[in-house]
């Protein structure tokens, strides 16, 4: 405190510096925000572009229209007499509505099955002690290290034997049968629930079965929500398996496969690039909403798992 000039006091300098730092952070965040959102904004703007054709030369469309969205649900063709007629609901080249229903069905089913499997496995490894536990854990670790689609051909062969190729049931099995391997995050969560709870219940004569259903599960809402939402979102984004397991009939595809096919072929891309953008926006809305809702669980789930390994 040897300076007398109040303006130049360390406190004031510190405050000014802090203010400058905060302003800098705001600017950086704003710039980063623009960079991060730019492609998304481009996607949204393109989806409203009334010009047909895949090439966009300006960011902001000159001709706004909902046509790309309408085209996803109602498609027209010229009939023999040269009239524009609506394509029948079962003969569309890209039946977007059907894809949404398919994906929803697959996602709901595999979400329920996967969540159950994950909870069963993670609870077992977290709370129960038995002889071969360590071996099972190691096996799980090892199985998890094989690249996911390395054995795709074999899984397909199995599905063929079971008669489940080209069926949504087959897809559900593909997405959920291996769910047991994804136990780490949930196990991390269960590890944090005090063991004293189990002990007390045991003294009261509860079986492990009862402890699982009546004591632990009610306490596990965050991890159940987290697991359910992550498994629910899986089928919306998977292209690899659905492209290998489903045939060329567009009515059996999920959204991911369908959208990919829209722009995969050079004979389609000119006509379908903008409807593709519209289709992407439509599915992004509910998924984003879900994601925002579950953010809180996501943070908890992931770090819980990470801390415990």
């Amino acid at each position: 405190m040897n300076t007398t000039n109040f303006q130049n006091s360390p406190q004031a300098g510190y405050a000014a510096k802090r203010k400058a730092a905060n302003t800098a952070i705001y600017i950086i965040l704003a710039v980063l925000g623009v960079i991060w959102l730019f492609p998304i904004i481009w996607l949204i703007l393109t989806s409203f572009d009334g010009e047909t054709g895949a090439v966009t030369r300006s960011l902001i469309p000159t001709n706004w229209s909902f046509n790309n969205y309408i085209k996803l649900f109602v498609q027209y063709e010229t009939d023999a007499n040269g009239n524009e007629v609506q394509v029948a609901a079962d003969a569309m080249q890209f039946p977007y509505m059907q894809w949404i229903l398919n994906t929803l069905f697959v996602a709901v089913c595999s979400c329920v099955i996967s969540t159950l499997l994950v909870l069963m496995v993670s609870y077992t490894f977290s709370r129960l002690r038995f002889k071969s536990r360590k071996t099972f854990l190691n096996m799980g670790l090892i199985l998890g290290m094989f690249p996911g689609f390395m054995s795709m051909v074999a899984v397909y062969a199995i599905m063929k034997v079971l008669g489940l190729t080209n069926s949504l049931i087959g897809l559900i099995i593909v997405y959920s049968a291996g769910a047991g391997l994804g136990y780490q995050v949930a196990k991390g969560f269960f590890d944090t629930i005090p063991h004293a709870l189990d002990e007390a219940a045991k003294i009261d004569g509860a079986t492990r079965h009862q402890i699982f259903w009546q004591i632990i599960l009610p306490l596990s809402k965050p991890i159940i929500v987290y697991t359910a939402l992550t498994t629910f979102m899986g089928p919306w984004g998977d292209y690899i398996f659905v492209s290998y397991f489903m045939d060329q009939n567009p009515y059996g595809w999920t959204v991911a496969r369908g959208l990919y096919e829209m722009i995969d072929n050079k004979e389609n891309i000119n006509e379908w690039f903008k409807p593709f953008c519209a289709g992407a926006v439509i599915i992004a809305i509910p998924i984003t909403t879900l994601f925002l809702i579950m953010q809180r669980f996501y943070v908890g789930g992931m770090t819980g798992g990470a801390v415990k390994g």
Partner: peptide
């Protein structure tokens, strides 16, 4: 109760065997 781990693990392990382990051995 005592062997609840067997009950809990049976279905997940069967799922893994059929659709993960068998395919990996096959490959």
């Amino acid at each position: 109760d005592e062997r609840f781990h067997v009950t809990l693990l049976t279905i997940p392990v069967l799922g893994l065997l059929a659709f993960t382990v068998v395919p990996i051995i096959f490959t």
